[in-house]
């Protein structure tokens, strides 16, 4: 799935599964991230994003599967695997009685020795240079988030795992983070795994998007593939419908309607492909009640893929 196959793999997840009792948190997740790639990890609340990130960082131990970072297994060779990994998981909480500079100094020293100059550079990068010698106690949530990003960048991270990094950031902070991630990826070949509910930001920053729902990966698409999916055709068919409808080129997803008498099948197709799609569907025995075409955007793709279905009582509403 890597767009640039010649690049080294920063992260490789194979068949990663995790259960809490009978509850499935992660279900056979396969995922790769190449060096320099920015991957957006999306999913409704409780989909398993944070558990996946924790598993990558060795905070949570998968029941099954393998996770490698830069070729090192995160369970058996954690120190090497995470040597150049920076992360924010959930809200970054710092010892409030230390200054921002001290926090960064002590935390980054756990990975490698870092000069004071480098610490100040990173603080400057996240807009906290003036607060370097202030205790974290007096920081706002947004400032703590910036400090969290700063600690993830130190000492010289080549792979960033950012769980909701834009939380609490003001618009300047969000724009700054967007620029920073682009720069890190393009100029410094840093790989980034970022989870966010700000889909507009994900669209702008990420070269690839993975959506998980109920612990299952339901989409893994590059920016170009998303753009193609963006232009989608939805046909509403009477149920039961022939399973062969899913074999038609461009098929994305099916959504059973509340009444269960009809299902909406989505295909990534331009408007010119609508007549051919209808001809093929009818040829396969489908009873079509309506056809819609339009640009959907990541938000609509996300909602359609993770919407309430018969086998999915997840969260497209409160």
């Amino acid at each position: 799935m890597c767009p640039e196959n010649e690049k080294r793999i920063a992260l490789s997840c194979r068949n990663v599964s995790k259960h809490y009792g009978s509850r499935v948190i992660l279900d056979s997740i396969d995922m790769d991230i190449a060096e320099g790639e920015v991957l957006g990890l999306l999913g409704p609340n409780g989909a398993g994003k944070t558990t996946l990130m924790k598993s990558i960082l060795g905070l949570s131990c998968p029941d099954d599967g393998e996770i490698e970072v830069f070729g090192h297994d995160v369970i058996s060779d954690r120190a090497r695997a995470l040597a150049r990994v920076g992360a924010i998981v959930e809200a970054p909480m710092f010892p409030v009685y230390l200054t921002a500079r001290d926090c960064l100094y002590y935390l980054s020293a756990l990975s490698a020795k870092v000069s004071d100059k480098r610490i100040m550079e990173v603080l400057d990068l996240v807009g906290l240079s003036e607060a370097a010698d202030r205790k974290v106690e007096g920081f706002s949530y947004g400032m703590k988030q910036r400090l969290g990003i700063a600690q993830a960048l130190l000492p010289d991270s080549k792979f960033l795992i950012l769980d909701e990094p834009a939380n609490g950031l003001d618009p300047h902070g969000i724009a700054g983070m967007r620029r920073l991630l682009r720069k890190l990826s393009a100029e410094m070949n840093v790989s980034v795994l970022v989870s966010s509910h700000l889909l507009h930001e994900v669209e702008q920053v990420c070269g690839r998007v993975v959506i998980i729902n109920k612990g299952k990966k339901i989409l893994d698409a590059t920016h170009d593939e998303l753009a193609a999916m963006d232009e989608a055709v939805s046909i509403t068919v009477k149920t039961p419908y022939p399973e062969t409808l899913k074999e038609i080129v461009g098929f994305i997803s099916e959504t059973l309607l509340e009444e269960k008498d009809f299902a909406v099948l989505r295909y990534a197709l331009p408007s010119a492909g609508v007549p051919e799609l209808v001809r093929q569907a009818v040829g396969k025995g489908a009873e079509i009640s309506s056809v819609e075409h339009g640009k959907s955007g990541l938000e609509n793709i996300f909602i359609s893929l993770t919407a309430r279905r018969e086998d999915n009582d997840s969260t497209d509403s409160f």
């Binding site: 960082l57 060795g58 905070l59 954690r78 120190a79 090497r80 695997a81 995470l82 040597a83 990994v85 992360a87 998981v89 959930e90 809200a91 970054p92 909480m93 710092f94 010892p95 935390l107 756990l110 990975s111 600690q151």
Partner: peptide, 12 residues
Amino acid sequence: GTLRLTMVRPVS
């Protein structure tokens, strides 16, 4: 939550 910050570093 500060324990997690230490635990995501490459230390056992």
